[in-house]
Design a protein around this nucleic acid. Structure first.
Lengths: 258, 258
DNA sequence: ATATCATTGTGTCAGAAAAACACATTGGTA
DNA sequence: TACCAATGTGTTTTTCTGACACAATGATAT
């Protein structure tokens, strides 16, 4: 505990020796589980609210590398689908008062003109991860790290609700270009699961039969000789992505919209 | 001339009192003229090369406001279609050596740790303007401001060629969502002109009759009882965008691709 | 004045893609 | 063992797309 406070003090008062001022990033980390789109959130200390995992940019790393680092710290995962989608730069998006209040309650002395009291512009990233493989981990600056149903995140700090909304909107548009399912689903999955994912992202229902036809027409799925048992009804086939065809589709984009 | 140097000195050595360090923006300003996509470029002092119009962000303005300001300074236009599309954050994208060399040749003393010698991250914007209405204007930091054919920009400074490429790529994708012609064409235009614009952006030819059918099906165009005379052949009708339908299309997006 | 001709306006038709819809199969559950 | 909800696999209908044909027009050349 003592060490943790030491680390925090170091970060707050000397962080600008390593990080660039004014620039931050926030990650909207999506997962899919039990037919629900999930977002990974952090519990802020001394605040009822939750927040997106975020961070700052080291002086010798790109935005993408920084986002990758943040993602790895929160999920333990590497080589993850990660895309920047928007820069958020409202003048009052930072809340310096709240920050100072937090520091007081932590008993940390913040020097005048501290870098964290400056205005910050944040680059929004969204990541798609396999819910089963991610291992949520809080850091020294947060009390908890958990998955939330996308439609049940409540009121987050700052403009984070807005950021999530923008991420979802971006993902919706890119659904036509990127085979997004590959990153959100486990290796093996059923057609109904894939469809539910698409329906959740798009926010509308799709015809079961037309969905399957179109999906298979892309040629990026291989059907296995295996079925998912255990459900209360007819056991559906399992599929997995054909990595070769998937890569090709990534370059050329998928045809037609939903 | 003396005043200009004064202004430059002020900007270079005290700019960080007004602007945020580490953050810049670059504008890819597109125009359309004589069946060609054009980009507005600035001639850099003491350098053979040209550059994208860019700037920095005042401490009390958003990225969008800053981009709008830059755009206005270079074209005299306001309320322009302007979208951010990517953050460029390569570590070596800035060229501090070149900057210091430039300053030496200008005879300007640059203090140690000057804000402009830091690493900068740039937010790329693209703008669509009416070529006829824009009035290119160089500023105190450049020798000229001119339109270039998109396929004839030559080698630009830093990563500006890359930025233009990304802007074009983004515009191509958004062509399916946004009625982009509205911003690039004058108020009244002919169907062949609109088609040429689309062909130029997409880099491929389209069937004249199919193009018209699909375009009219969007319902965002009004045909006028007027024709463009003066051409050597049959006079084509003039069209203009139906602003109401255009706004609706902006929200909902256009269907189908090209 | 008139014939010329590249360009524009309008329409058709076949094939592809999407939307709407029907029925047999299956694997737990009652 | 009958039941039933969910899955697998079609067909039909409608819409969209791509390819193509022909008449109309308006400046230009003769």
């Amino acid at each position: 505990m003592m060490e943790q406070k030491q680390e925090m003090h170091e970060f707050i008062n000397r962080g600008d020796e390593h990080f660039m001022a004014h620039i931050s990033l926030d990650c909207v980390i999506f997962g899919f589980h039990a037919n629900q789109l999930k977002v990974l959130l952090l519990k802020i200390r001394h605040d009822d609210r939750w927040a997106l995992p975020g961070g700052f940019v080291l002086k010798e790393e790109t935005m993408e590398e920084a986002a990758d680092r943040v993602l790895n710290e929160r999920t333990g995962l590497n080589d993850i689908f990660l895309r920047q989608f928007h820069v958020f730069s409202d003048i009052h998006r930072s809340n310096t008062e709240k920050f100072l209040e937090l520091m007081r309650s932590e008993g940390i002395v913040v020097e005048e003109n501290n870098w964290l009291t400056k205005r910050f512009i944040s680059v929004g990233f969204y990541a798609l991860v396999d819910y089963e493989k991610a291992i949520p981990a809080e850091g020294w600056d947060s009390e908890a790290c958990e998955w939330f149903d996308l439609d049940n995140v409540g009121e987050l700090i700052l403009d984070h609700n807005k950021i999530i909304g923008a991420a979802l909107e971006t993902m919706r548009r890119q659904l036509n270009f990127l085979p997004i399912g590959y990153n959100l689903l486990p290796e093996k999955f059923t057609m109904p699961e894939l469809q539910k994912l698409y329906e959740t992202i798009l926010g509308k229902t799709l015809d079961r039969r037309n969905f399957q036809r179109k999906m298979l027409a892309y040629g990026i799925l291989d059907r296995l000789d295996e079925r998912r048992k255990g459900g209360a009804h007819k056991a559906p086939y399992l599929y997995k992505f054909n990595l070769e065809q998937y890569q090709k589709a990534l370059k050329e984009g998928l045809q037609g919209g939903w």
